[in-house]
Amino acid sequence: MNDKLLPDHHDSVMQRIERDLLDSYDEELEMEIDDARLAEGAEGEDGLNRQTYFRELLRLQGELVKLQDWVQHHKKKVVILFEGRDAAGKGGVIKRITQRLNPRVCRVAALPAPNDREKTQWYFQRYVSHLPAGGEIVLFDRSWYNRAGVERVMGFCTDDEYEEFFRTVPEFEKMLIRSGITLVKYWFSITDDEQHLRFLGRIHDPLKQWKLSPMDFESRRRWEAYTKAKEIMLERTHIPEAPWYLVQAVDKKKARLNCIAHLLTQLPYEEIEHPAIVLPERARNPDYTRHPVPADMYVPERY
C-alpha cells in the first residue's frame, strides 16, 4: 500500500478491499446454493457444517495456489483424471480445484463424443493433443476411460476394440509417466439411491435441466452393467505406476475436500518465494485530457 495515502483515504481503501474479499466469499455461497444442507449453521447427521466446509475449502485452495506456483516454476506436467457415474460430483470438485487458479496453468479437458474423423484415428490420439506442456496442469473431466465405461455399456465399441484398449492403456500410461507426466486417477463413487436423488433434483430444477441427456437416463436403466464395467476397469487398469483412487462421493462437500486434500499429497510441492510486489506510481501527463463517453454507450444501471 502506498505510504503517501492520507489516513482517511487509507481506511477507505482497506474497507473497499475488505468488501471485495467478502464479495468473493459470497461467490462461494452462490456455488453451493444447490445443496440444501448448506443452510445457515446446518449440519447433516455426519456432515460438515457450513463454516467448517468453507474454512477448509479456502485453506485447501490456498495450498492449490502454492501447488500451481510450484508446477509453473519447475515446469512440471500434471494430468488428473476424474471418472465416475453421471451425477457423481466430478464437475463440482473440478470447479473448486480450478476456481482460484490461473487458467493458463490449470485447464480442463472435457471432450465431446468423437466425430466421424476422430473415430478413424488411434483411440488415444484426440486425448494426446490435450496433454500438458511443462508448467501446466490438465484436469480431464472424463478421459480415455470412456471406452471401458460408456462405450462398452452402450455398445459404441466392438469387443476387439474393448480388449485392445485394455492391452494398450497400461503401456500408454507408463509412457506418459516416463515422459515426465504425473498422472493421478480418481473414481467418484456414489450409491444407486444417491444417483437417483440427484437425477430427480436435475429434473425438477430449471437451472440444472441442461445437465440431463438421454445418456443419463440410459445410465440409470443400466446401473448394473455400469457397475460390472467399472469393476473390470479398476481390476485391469489399477497398475503400480498409475493406481486408481476411489472417492466416496455421496456427501458432496466431504468428497470435494477429501479429493483436494489427497491430490495435494501426490506432488512434493513447496512454496515458491516471490519478490515483494510494489505498485508503481501512475504516470501523469499534464497535457492529457479524458474525452467524454456518449451516454448511450453505458450499460443501464438497473441495480
Rank of each mutant, 00 (worst) to 15 (best):
Tyr186Asp: 00
Arg302Thr: 12
Trp244Ile: 04
Glu161Met: 12
Asp159Ile: 14
Tyr145Ala: 05
Tyr298Cys: 04
Glu235Gln: 11
Gly134Ala: 00
Gly180Pro: 02
Met297Trp: 00
Leu183Lys: 11
Val108Asp: 04
Gly84Ser: 14
Gly89Trp: 09
Trp70Ile: 00
Asn285Phe: 10
Phe82Trp: 13
Tyr288Pro: 09
Asp35Trp: 05
Leu6Lys: 15
Pro268Trp: 13
Trp187Gly: 11
Ala261Ile: 09
Ile80Cys: 12
Ser129Tyr: 05
Tyr162Arg: 05
Leu183Phe: 03
Leu101Cys: 06
Asp34Gly: 04
Glu271Ile: 00
Ser189Trp: 02
Met31Trp: 01
Ser129Lys: 06
Leu139Arg: 01
Leu197Trp: 15
Val184Lys: 08
Pro112Arg: 08
Leu48Lys: 02
Phe217Trp: 15
Asp159Cys: 09
Phe124Arg: 03
Arg59Asn: 06
Asp192Arg: 13
Val105Lys: 14
Gln195Tyr: 00
Arg282Glu: 07
Lys90Asp: 02
Ile177Gly: 07
Leu21Met: 06
Thr227Glu: 12
Ala110Leu: 07
Leu48Trp: 10
Tyr226Ser: 00
Arg96Glu: 02
Asp69Arg: 15
Leu139Met: 02
Pro300Gln: 09
Met233Ile: 05
Phe172Arg: 00
Ala255Val: 05
Asn258Met: 09
Leu5Ser: 10
Leu267Gln: 13
Leu234Gly: 13
Ala276Leu: 06
Ile94His: 01
Leu234Gln: 03
Glu45Asp: 10
Ile80Phe: 02
Val65Thr: 06
Gly41Leu: 02
Arg284Asn: 12
Tyr162Gln: 07
Ser213Lys: 14
His238Met: 13
Gly149Met: 15
Leu22Phe: 03
Met233Ala: 02
Asp46Val: 05
Arg117Thr: 12
Met1Phe: 10
Thr191Met: 05
Val78Phe: 09
Pro275Gly: 00
Thr191Val: 09
Pro132Lys: 08
Asp116Gln: 00
Ile137Leu: 06
